[in-house]
Design a protein around this nucleic acid. Sequence first.
DNA 1: GGTAAACTCCCCATTTCTGGGGAGTGGTCA
DNA 2: TGACCACTCCCCAGAAATGGGGAGTTTACC
Lengths: 247, 247
Amino acid sequence: MVLKTAQAFAFAVETAATIDELATLLEAIAHEMGFQHYALAHHVDVPRAPQPAIRVHNYPGEWEAWFDAERLGPSDPVHRASHLTSVGFPWSRLPQLIVITKRDEEILAHSRRVGLADGFTVPAHVPGESAGSCSFATAHGRTFRTEWMPLAQFVGATAFEGARRLSGVRRTDQDRPRLSDRQRDCIYWAARGKSDWETSQILGIGHDTAIQHMKEARSRYGVTNRTQLAIHALYDGALTFTDALKR
Amino acid sequence: MVLKTAQAFAFAVETAATIDELATLLEAIAHEMGFQHYALAHHVDVPRAPQPAIRVHNYPGEWEAWFDAERLGPSDPVHRASHLTSVGFPWSRLPQLIVITKRDEEILAHSRRVGLADGFTVPAHVPGESAGSCSFATAHGRTFRTEWMPLAQFVGATAFEGARRLSGVRRTDQDRPRLSDRQRDCIYWAARGKSDWETSQILGIGHDTAIQHMKEARSRYGVTNRTQLAIHALYDGALTFTDALKR
DNA sequence: GGTAAACTCCCCATTTCTGGGGAGTGGTCA
DNA sequence: TGACCACTCCCCAGAAATGGGGAGTTTACC
């Protein structure tokens, strides 16, 4: 019975003491759902460690080697798409979520070559802290059965939460930069493409003052330019896309 | 059969044309899971939010009035807890997630008074957007059955995604600019705070070439500086926050 | 064979950003 | 009262970004 399986999995994840245990659990339940592969990637404390802190998977060794070799570039399409939704998606829906470039097609073709035929990815985010995803994939020639999507959604989210607990990282409000009101105002307009001079006119302050606020904001986030400043502010919720994209 | 129910729900949400339809679907499936109430919301101060925010629910009218009067949007304990996890949680677990203040106790007591006895909340986060959640609650004196958690997790996430689509938080159907691979490479490094010269060294191309790719990318997005370029690329999935955040 | 697009490189002038320094006011809190 | 912080303004100099122009090669496709 499906709900029983899910409950048992949730309980097992909660009591798991190591990442290896989590991996074993994932492998077992992936098979039960008709998947041959799983991959859980968890980025702890993204601003400081963009590289995955937890990466558990049973993808073909070939795939990992290739992926790491090519790693200089932007990340793979599945990962990109997982930042755009809050619900799990089958890989067949990728083109609806992101624009597939030539390189993406290469990546997807290569993944099929090494035996990752079709899959389902569950995104997981905690504001200001961690981002990650949990994917399930089928081997050559098989397509996965959509009936399992609800369970996969639950399993993915639960597994991610387990990884989060095992990695021992919880956000504390202290280590998040605190911005003053004026600093936020300036970042807001900078994110909308305004120069410091334009911002100063909008806010009715001096040009130098606007510059000063931006300086201070950069130093709080520990970054050296306005692009990174805006991205960090977006990531931890000081800004939203609706703020930044309005004309 | 549970999986059938879930699939039917997912399909219905995908084809729903209005928020009202979504509300009807949620109400029905909430009842099926043994809940009398549901509430799907962005965690903003809805009455004065400058941006489009989602709120659909069948909580008692009394509750909504009080909620808005007290301006609980971001400070409600259930909402606060949902910012700290990526998986659904029963309200009985609140004390393990957040520190319950006196104020929180008042809020929870009031919610019980108006008829919200026990509940389960599914958080929903997409980087760069307002935090949100989908809750299910039982009426007076009833406790909910934990067997339904997996389904509730799926239903909550799916419903939130449907609400996102219907409220136009993210325009998915809009034609997004197509970037060449090199343009995306340059944006990728620019978003990580590199100057055009540094990017050129990383990619092994000339300084002028890197500048040229950035020019062309800006013009495709119709923006005039790299900050907006990076934000647009993040927004439509050409980049992820994991790509962009520092180091 | 012609066209389009991607990728590469070069020139110019101007604006904008960034990092370094300094200083004064007003408000809060111990 | 003193310490701290938010906010305001000022100067300087070098680095970087932006917008405009141009041009060659390769690859893919009709």
